[in-house]
């Protein structure tokens, strides 16, 4: 069976003058509908570049992204991105930020009232409905990320792209948000690609963990299926043998076989 989303032999190199540096090489990754895939690797391995290629924000040098049998090479709301630094528009309220996306995606298919309800529905999903009237500067970092998630979910994307969504958050807030993301994506059955450098996060949330080798010319080193039942509760998992085994194998890949020598 063909995959829902296919990353098909993607190469990416950046040319600076006559010198071209190859960042990604021969990335092949089929992703099924409703699957949660994490991409993990050391910083600088090009995993964010890969996500930008899937989002259509960066063109690949060779290869392509095939979604439901069609090649996609421009950004669009069918591949909604939750950016690492939330990227909310500071002059709009929480509601206004989500509403902008809703108006753009459903401007023709939904009535004004339906769009309002849909905006509020998505804010409720991330528990931000009570802060709808506030501006991004008035809410915490975790809340901003929630709004970013609501904005992405509100587009009803075919694929949800999370670019280190919890990277800038403290550990407790991060745990809360991971639980929220797991609950929501399991409930809605989203297809998700998440970039992360946090081993626990990858194992906790994913159906498969894709481990990238170090750049230059980074590629997929290993793909680890995480065969844990859902819903996953972090306290129960802490001593679960499958969880511990997955975690050990990712750590082994990252820190033994592909550690960075110049790591600070």
């Amino acid at each position: 069976m063909d995959a829902y989303l296919q990353l098909d032999h993607i190469d990416k190199s950046f040319a600076r003058g006559a010198v071209a540096s190859e960042v990604l090489k021969a990335i092949v990754l089929p992703i099924h509908k409703g699957e949660f895939v994490s991409i993990i690797g050391h910083s600088g391995c090009g995993k964010s570049t890969l996500l930008n290629i899937v989002a259509g924000l960066t063109p690949p040098t060779a290869g392509g992204v095939i979604l439901e049998g069609h090649e996609v090479n421009a950004p669009g709301p069918d591949r909604a991105v939750v950016f690492q630094n939330h990227s909310l528009l500071p002059w709009l309220t929480v509601y206004g930020n989500v509403r902008l996306a809703v108006d753009k995606v459903f401007g023709k298919s939904k009535s004004r009232i339906e769009r309002h309800d849909w905006t509020m529905h998505n804010l409720k999903l991330v528990h931000m409905a009570h802060e709808a009237h506030k501006r991004p500067a008035e809410i915490s970092g975790g809340m901003k990320q929630r709004v970013g998630l609501a904005r992405a979910l509100a587009m009803e994307p075919k694929v949800l792209l999370l670019d280190e969504p919890f990277g800038a958050l403290d550990a407790l807030t991060r745990a809360q948000l991971q639980d929220s993301v797991q609950e929501i994506t399991t409930q809605l059955g989203n297809t998700v690609i998440m970039i992360t450098h946090d081993v626990d996060e990858a194992v906790l949330l994913s159906d498969r963990v894709v481990m990238m080798t170090n750049g230059p010319s980074a590629t997929i080193g290993e793909v680890l299926p995480v065969l844990l039942p859902r819903p996953r509760r972090r306290l129960e998992l802490a001593a679960h043998p499958v969880y511990l085994d997955c975690r050990r194998r990712v750590l082994d890949f990252l820190y033994r076989r592909h550690r960075t020598f110049e790591a600070a």
Partner: peptide
């Protein structure tokens, strides 16, 4: 660039981009 990326993902047309992103961001 973040705002430009948001606009790209939302596929804002040039007029919408001018009104909803550029003017407020440069205000």
């Amino acid at each position: 660039d973040d705002y430009r990326n948001v606009a790209k993902v939302l596929q804002l047309n040039p007029l919408e981009f001018f009104r909803k992103i550029m003017l407020p961001a440069a205000a």
